[in-house]
């Protein structure tokens, strides 16, 4: 079992902020947690990483109790940028993680190249923009090639290019076997990342997740839509090729992640992924009422 959250309850003072959360993740996946402010998303993540004490229930990550600090060799938690030390450089932060996790220093160059922050890795964090800090947080979270990557609002402060870059990195990590558990307000980006979206309200996970609901129609544009269409059909995917929209399919019939993986494995370049139906945002509005976010 990769993640097992069993009837987790947490209260602040006398108010229950988590009311019996249950979740099982048995194979690598991208799971999104969506909900309004105060719904308990960050509390759940903090409980999973033992930053907060559980009042009831239990959590195991990779079949180990979440209280065992050794799990952090394989579990990373991308938190908000307050955790960074302003007067240290990005390199200092990454070197520290390499030191405590016995990761060779050459990984620093690899990960900074991957995230796109090589040019400012030796600069002090206090001079970083919000986006640069997010890059560093991502680099810190993935330098150990984690099996589980927990992320709290990772897209905050990212410009569109960086957001796309982060999405690509996360999809690559997923393909490499990392389970990604992400909470975010950016419904559009989340929608593009996964349809395994869980909604959270008032400290409880709603029974329905987006993947259980009405389908969303996707359209994907690649560097060679004809060949990609043929490949997908050869692999029994129910897809259509449409003029101007590229390859389209319904989430009900075809998994976006599987399509992306197959195309990636065959070296197709994904130019864009769009969903025709509003997907997560539409459902979010239905569940939480417009304007409550």
């Amino acid at each position: 079992m990769i993640i097992h959250v069993d009837n987790v309850k947490k209260k602040y003072k006398k108010e229950w902020v988590l009311k019996g959360i249950n979740m099982k993740v048995e194979e690598p996946n991208i799971i999104a947690l969506v909900g309004p402010n105060g719904s308990g998303k960050t509390t759940l993540l903090n409980c999973m990483t033992n930053i907060l004490k559980l009042d009831e229930g239990s959590i195991t990550l990779l079949d180990q109790p979440h209280t065992d600090t050794s799990i952090f060799k394989e579990v990373s938690y991308l938190q908000d940028n307050r955790i960074l030390y302003g007067h240290l450089t990005a390199y200092d932060h990454l070197k520290f993680i390499c030191d405590v996790q016995k990761i060779p220093y050459k990984k620093i160059k690899e990960v900074t190249d991957r995230v796109g922050m090589s040019s400012y890795v030796k600069r002090r964090v206090q001079n970083f923009s919000l986006g640069m800090k997010q890059h560093l947080l991502l680099a810190m979270a993935i330098i150990n090639q984690p099996k589980i990557l927990l992320m709290d609002e990772p897209l905050n402060g990212l410009d569109p290019t960086s957001a796309i870059n982060m999405r690509e990195i996360l999809l690559q990590l997923y393909e490499e076997g990392t389970t990604i558990f992400v909470s975010s307000h950016n419904l559009d980006e989340i929608d593009r990342l996964t349809h395994n979206i869980h909604f959270m309200k008032d400290g409880a996970l709603l029974k329905e997740s987006l993947k259980d609901m009405d389908s969303v129609t996707y359209s994907i544009k690649t560097n060679d839509d004809d060949q990609a269409n043929l490949l997908l059909k050869e692999n029994a995917f129910d897809v259509q090729l449409q003029k101007n929209r590229g390859i389209t399919f319904s989430e009900r019939d075809v998994s976006l992640q599987h399509v992306m993986k197959l195309l990636h494995d065959h070296d197709f370049t994904i130019i864009s992924v769009d969903n025709k139906v509003e997907g997560a945002e539409k459902r979010y509005r239905e569940l939480f009422e417009e304007g409550s976010v």
């Binding site: 903090n46 930053i51 600090t69 955790i83 030390y85 993680i97």
Partner: peptide, 11 residues
């Protein structure tokens, strides 16, 4: 809040 970073390391 940087204590969060330290306590989510394998130390």
């Amino acid at each position: 809040g940087s204590i969060h970073f330290l306590i989510t390391q394998p130390i």
